[in-house]
């Protein structure tokens, strides 16, 4: 299969999406998606509005379970556990503990900066204060926020700028050592400088964690991702190495989208 050819040399798998379908009530939103996501790589999902890229992303940490009438079909297997994360038998909480999410708009809790990052650890039952402090510092360092906030950890996170808030949200997602972080258009509410910082961050983070990022900005996809999936009308049209997708797409539709003919 074409998709599988994209993964060269059979490198370590992180997530295998197999014949995945998703329904919002009667609406068939995702159709027969097959996707292989490699460990510690960044995968960009691109496509015009309404193509299903966010729907696919939100399936990965079972956010659709929060609202009634949604239904998953098919498989999404998380490695190395071999856990089908969209199976009704799997608790969405377990999935969300392994796969963190960063949202479109920065959404820090109206608590202190420290509490924001520590919250994920708290709900995982970690009580060791030193360990929490250590993890909080490491996460904030990883997102390049530590030097900016180390003297105001006990101040409200809402006092930070939009870009800082978004990096705080990434630190919050990172603190719990997730296997995958999914980003849902993380820079669409940010200015260009803050956007550049987040992109840089994604490039650094993928050394330690697998990243899936939805973006409507093709330059961003080209800058941050190793693999790119182009989606259209709920279907996965093309998936491959980012450099190939952007230089010699194999499908006409992909080429038209990338060159700006539609979407």
């Amino acid at each position: 299969m074409e998709n599988e050819n994209a993964i060269v040399n059979n490198k370590e798998l992180r997530l295998e999406v197999k014949n995945f379908n998703f329904y919002y009530g009667q609406v068939h939103a995702l159709k027969n998606i097959d996707l292989l996501i490699e460990r510690n790589k960044a995968v960009a999902l691109i496509g015009p509005s309404g193509c299903g890229k966010s729907t696919l992303l939100r399936s990965m940490n079972r956010m659709h379970d929060l609202y009634p009438g949604n239904r998953y079909e098919g498989e999404m297997i998380l490695y190395p556990e071999k856990l089908n994360i969209v199976s009704p038998k799997v608790d969405p909480l377990e999935v969300r503990m392994k796969i963190s999410m960063v949202f479109q708009k920065p959404n820090p809790f109206p608590k202190t900066i420290f509490e924001n990052v520590a919250y994920g650890l708290k709900i995982r039952g970690i009580k060791d204060k030193d360990l929490i402090a250590q993890k909080v510092q490491k996460s904030l360092e990883n997102v390049g926020l530590w030097n900016e906030v180390k003297n105001r950890l006990n101040q409200s996170a809402l006092g930070l700028s939009g870009g800082q808030q978004q990096r705080l949200c990434i630190a919050r997602a990172l603190a719990t050592d997730p296997e995958i972080i999914v980003f849902d258009e993380p820079t669409s509410a940010l200015d260009p400088i803050a956007t550049a910082k987040i992109e840089e961050l994604v490039n650094v983070l993928k050394k330690e964690v697998t990243i899936v990022i939805v973006t409507h900005n093709m330059q961003q996809a080209a800058r941050v991702s190793d693999y790119t999936a182009f989606m259209y009308m709920g279907e996965l049209i093309e998936f491959g190495e980012t450099k190939n997708i952007f230089t010699r797409p194999s499908k006409k539709l992909t080429e038209e989208y990338i060159t700006g003919h539609f979407g």
């Binding site: 909480l93 963190s100 949202f103 708009k105 109206p110 709900i123 949200c169 919050r172």
Partner: peptide, 15 residues
């Protein structure tokens, strides 16, 4: 309370 805050908490794995 904005729904984004609820989603932020639930996405971290809270009940």
């Amino acid at each position: 309370i904005p729904n984004t805050i609820r989603e932020a908490a639930l996405a971290l794995g809270t009940t």
